[in-house]
Design a protein around this nucleic acid. Structure first.
Lengths: 211, 211
DNA sequence: TAATATGGTCACCATTTGGTGACTTTCCCA
DNA sequence: TGGGAAAGTCACCAAATGGTGACCATATTA
């Protein structure tokens, strides 16, 4: 396979594409998905909107391309799944949930994408869901289902609640005041309390398999 | 204070106002808050959009009026707070969370408002948050804080997670597939599992105060 | 019953937004 | 070096959307 060195035209084109994709990210982070209009994207990119149609076919395809470049599971899956799990995944579960809680708090982009996914039907967003379910299913079937046996569904339900809680808590801090049940979710102390509770709940769930 | 019987004109006006408010609800339920445009609201109400400006001052005020008529805490607060709580609110907590889980599942309108609140800054939505926090605070301070003592914050954090989880799970069933951690949240069986887990987690949390 | 006030309609305008044809500029290559 | 291909710009159009003045119809009232 020969590697043709790109001409300056091709370089320019790729550069423009990247500018447009970057503009999408910037707008998403700052104003949310509803502000992703052709004119605005082009303006932020400093290019003519015609290029969006030329290079991507339209706004929708640009957004799909943008989303497909994002992989928000790299912070969780793969290398972070340890080989030797002796505790039925207890510590791993805690790490996973904590990582989600922390990562989403820091990544406004991820927050906006999750909100987007709650608001709009879109194949590329759907795919994100599917991927996450698939990754989750591997962990569940290989590690926790065997450990919990008859209670496998209980553990699944607990994780569904905790992960959902992590999502919602991070979504709500941005818009509403950051107070939830009297805890300030923008303060370290408040977030530490949540994390403590997450670990506590997971420990309690694992406790039932040690009767 | 004399009660003037309303003239037929006044009746007509009130009727039109109600039609407009009803149109808001209908659109919100079916298409979400982003579809709440002047033209569409007027069309659904079967009236001229000019009336929105005449009677409410504009779309924003119409929406605020709409939201202020809604009280989504009537299904929880007040009459449902029992007088004689012997268990530190354990059963009451379970009822509360279950009621939320169930109510939100059935009320698409409530779902859309919660999603709206995550998406847009708006005083009337903010007020909803404040009200909920206030109601919650009463319960927390009078019932659970005393019961949990030093662990009061842990209980608060647990409830924050559970309630958030309930919110998110009900939001996600609508848009993404309804599968979460392998559980189908549109099926009775899946929802029963979640409810079981909610109760389990609350029981486990109360268990720490009985060492 | 005639004047007035008000609910309600319609036509119209300005702005925003998505989308495209025609043009210019620049690079590549025969 | 000249012609073609492709990057990039600009002007323009159409539809959607927010907003308003002028008008009509009818109930109330002097």
């Amino acid at each position: 396979m020969e590697q043709k060195s790109p001409s300056s035209k091709e370089q320019s084109k790729e550069k423009s594409k990247k500018k447009l994709l970057a503009a999408v990210g910037k707008i998403l982070k700052t104003k949310g998905f509803s502000a992703l209009k052709v004119n605005d994207i082009a303006a932020v990119a400093g290019l003519d909107k015609k290029l969006i149609y030329k290079y991507f076919g339209g706004t929708d395809q640009l957004l799909d391309t943008y989303l497909s470049t994002k992989d928000f599971w790299s912070n969780v899956k793969g290398d972070r799944i340890p080989k030797d799990i002796k505790d039925g995944g207890q510590e791993f579960s805690k790490e996973l949930v904590s990582a989600q809680f922390d990562y989403m708090f820091r990544s406004k982009e991820y927050q906006k994408i999750i909100l987007w996914r709650l608001s709009e039907q879109r194949k590329s967003l759907q795919r994100l869901t599917t991927t996450q379910e698939e990754v989750g299913e591997v962990i569940l079937q290989h590690i926790t289902d065997p450990h919990f046996g008859d209670n496998a569904d209980l553990y699944r339900a607990v994780m569904a609640i905790l992960v959902s809680g992590v999502y919602y808590l991070n979504l709500t801090t941005d818009v509403n005041g950051s107070i939830f049940c009297g805890l300030d979710l923008n303060e370290k102390s408040g977030r530490a309390k949540i994390e403590e509770a997450l670990h506590f709940l997971i420990d309690q769930t694992y406790a039932i398999s040690k009767d």
